[in-house]
Every structure is written in C-alpha cells, then in structure tokens.
Design a protein around this nucleic acid. Sequence first.
DNA 1: AGCCGGCTTGCGGGTTCCCGCAGGACGCGA
DNA 2: TCGCGTCCTGCGGGAACCCGCAAGCCGGCT
Lengths: 243, 243
Amino acid sequence: MRVLLVEDDPLHRAWLREAVRQALPECREIVECADGGDGETRAREMPDACVVMDLQMQPRTGIDAARTIWRERPATRILFWSNYSDEAYVRGVSRIVPPGAAYGYVLKSASGERLRLALRGIFVENQCVIDGEVRGAQQRSAVQSGALSETEYEVLIDIALGLTDQAIALRRGLSLRSVQNRLQAIYDKLGVRAVEGQTGLYNLRGRAVSVAVLRRLLNRATLEHAEADLARWTARHPRPRDP
Amino acid sequence: MRVLLVEDDPLHRAWLREAVRQALPECREIVECADGGDGETRAREMPDACVVMDLQMQPRTGIDAARTIWRERPATRILFWSNYSDEAYVRGVSRIVPPGAAYGYVLKSASGERLRLALRGIFVENQCVIDGEVRGAQQRSAVQSGALSETEYEVLIDIALGLTDQAIALRRGLSLRSVQNRLQAIYDKLGVRAVEGQTGLYNLRGRAVSVAVLRRLLNRATLEHAEADLARWTARHPRPRDP
DNA sequence: AGCCGGCTTGCGGGTTCCCGCAGGACGCGA
DNA sequence: TCGCGTCCTGCGGGAACCCGCAAGCCGGCT
C-alpha cells in the first residue's frame, strides 16, 4: 500500500504523515505534495495510491484534484481532510464521488485517534467514514425545510454569479417563467420572503445570495468554479445578435 | 513582557509558541487561547500583554477580538497572523487599528525567520510590520483603477446584504438617486458594464457582488459582520407603516 | 379510468432597477 | 467674480424583476 498526501500547510502535512505512519504500518511509501495540480500528476504515477486530500488549496482545490483523479480511476480511495464542514464543500464532494467509491470526510479539528480510525476504515476496510459534524451539515440541508433540490441549487449559483433570469433560462434550457418559479422556491426555502414589517427592505435576489453565503451554502470556491463553467459555456455558446 | 497567543489550530499554536520562545527570550510568560472571546477576557487580565492573533476563528473572529481589545487599550501591540491576504481582511484590519498603534500582518505561509523578525519588530521595536504580499493587496486596491472609496465600499456591502436602493438610501442618509450614482461608480470600477457582446447577460447588481467576492473584496466574515450591524440598525430604526 | 401533486409555461400587472439628462450646492484656484 | 470639478438630487423612461392566476403535461396511486 502506498499513500499520497496532498496538503499545502507544512505543519498539517507533517502531522498527517505521522498519523499515517502510526495507523498504517503496512504502508510502504508516503508521497507528499502541496498543491492540487501536483496531486493529480503524482496520483497518475501511483496507480494503486490511497489519497489524503486537503480541500482548501491554491490554485487548484482538493475538489478539482479529486475530480480528475476519480475520472481517471474511479475506485481510488480518497480521504478529504478539511477545516470546514460547510454545506458548500460537502455538496462539492458528494457531487463528484463516483458511485460505489469509498471515501471519507474528516475535520482537521478531529482528534488524532479519529483521524487514524478513519485512515484504517477507508484505506484498509474500504468503507466510508464521515465525521459527525459533516454528516450533521449534510442532514440539516437534506432533511430540514431549507432543502434546496439540485436544480434549485444550480439556479442559486446562477444568480450568485449575477446572471439575469433570461440568461439562466438560456443556459439551463428553461422558459423564463420556470426560472422564476425556481427562484420563488429558493426564496421560500431560504426564508427570504417579506417578513411582515420590513416591506421593501430587501431585494430578494440579492438577499437570497447573502443568506446562502451566511449559511455556508455558497462560498468563494463554489463561485470561482461556477464562474469557470460559465466562461466555458459562453465561449461555446453563439451569442445572439446585439448591435 | 508577556505574550498572549490567540489561535484555534493547536498545531499552529504550538509553532507560534516555539517562535515566540526563540524570538523573545525576555518574555516571561506565554498565555494561549483558542477563541476570540477567550482572547478578549484573557487580554483584560494581562494589561501589558502583546498579542498574536489569528484572523479566522469561530465564533468570534480575530477582528472582533482585536476591536474590543483596542477599544479598551488602544496602545496594545497586535500581530495578526493569517492564512490569507484578501483585501476583505486587510480592509477589516486597517479599519479598526487605532491611530499610532503598532501592529503587524504576517501570513502563515511566511518562513519562521520572517515571523520571528516580525515578533521582535512589533513587540520590542514598536514598529509596524506588514508582509509584502499583504501590502501588495493593499496597494492593488488603493492605487489601481479598481479603487473603491470607503463610501462606495459601504454601498457594495449593502447590496451584498441584499438591500434595496431605497433601504440603502434610508440607512446611509442619502437620496435614492445618490445611491444609484454610487452604484454606477461601483459598476464602473469593478468593470461590470455591458461588455459589448453579452447584452442582458448580467444583472449588474448581482454581478458586482459576484466579482467582489471573486476578487476577495468581500468574504463571509465581512458579510456576517455587516449583517450584525444591519440587525442593530433595523432594531433601532422605527420601521415605516406597512399595513 | 380518474384523481392528485409536481413541474412547466404564458399572461399581465405592479414594483424595482438601470441610467441619461439637467439643474443645484460646495470648494478651489485663477 | 468667474470658471471648473465633484457630489447630490429630481425627472423620466425602458428594461428587468417579483409574482398571482390559470392552463397544460406527466407519473403515480387507488
């Protein structure tokens, strides 16, 4: 067994290395790198690698790296090791995990014992290990009233990018009115409707984005990513006449 | 001399402690805590303390803690030790530093040598030490074309919160048209105007917030903070009739 | 079949936003 | 005093947004 560590903070990397050494004595080699891009190329060189991946990295994030790794080798076992349990990150991960793959999500604030257990659980026992706090965030969003469906989430991202209703309709292949319906649903679920006593205080569109950020449904990484998608789309899409 | 360390990550805290021990042998006591709120109370107990402060903490951030510390004792020397050089953070800090106070801003990615130099510079020599990258972000915003004035920045925050033009006018004591003028200025400076070929693609209001986040002018901490301010304002403000 | 709930679409309207135009207030240097 | 630049403000209109109402499609349930 060989392990690839992708983590930009040297301190955390050292701590990780030690945890792996203790939890996985059968591990014959530990390779380390500090950036998502490096992670991808190193993973290519180690077809049997188990990966421990930080999520917040520059310029390529852990999500980016994990996506390409999984695209090339869907059975790869990846443990995400992150500072935050924001829904934005959790959604980002669960969006790219291939069906049937074993993976994990452990917070950096977890104890060494928990980290070591997760390492064995994923890389040896081939099971999924999700920290309680993370699962909490997952549930909170999926079960409670504020459960944005996947399509609603996409529209939320689109308005966060600053697109018009019209543009969203074009992009997602919907009528203008459908987009607006989805918006209504989002406003309801985020609890952004006229709150009886503050009429005209909020611009619902902007407000929705605001509370989404405050509730950690959205973050800069999400946006950056969506921005790149959008750029790709506009490039491919013939812009209508506009003289 | 006594030093107070406020940093939530245990690894980083240990690293910091070691750096202080090396750089400041004359330091007789090092107190550590892991949260902004604790930091404030511990600082109260140590009237002569020098403070090293992480910026990203839960639930009270380093900015929050520094503000109350400086309010009670403006001469306190504080070294901010942060992961990021985002303009949002830099603005946040420079907004609360009292005139004449010595402070520092060093990135966590800096070498141990740089950190130790900063420690001596601030706490012993009583000078300001700002990392090059940070100063870069500062300059980039202040000099280049994309230089939002302080008032424009406030309006930017307001639309990021999802307020209507009307609400902003009320809050800031301006006419509706003036608010809109400021918005025009923001749109120009952020380069969000109709880009010749994509008419009707963007909702300028939302787009401005989007690029502000992407350019790191705004982040979740900024918003959270502004949100609290807003709540205080609406509470104090008699809402107009709306039956 | 028949009914129901969910998703989509069109229509129409009231409101808000975006912004060019133009007039007024203030400070500053000639 | 005049001219100039900068900021605030009102007016007006075109566009975009917010949203109730109603009709159609479709899959599931009895």
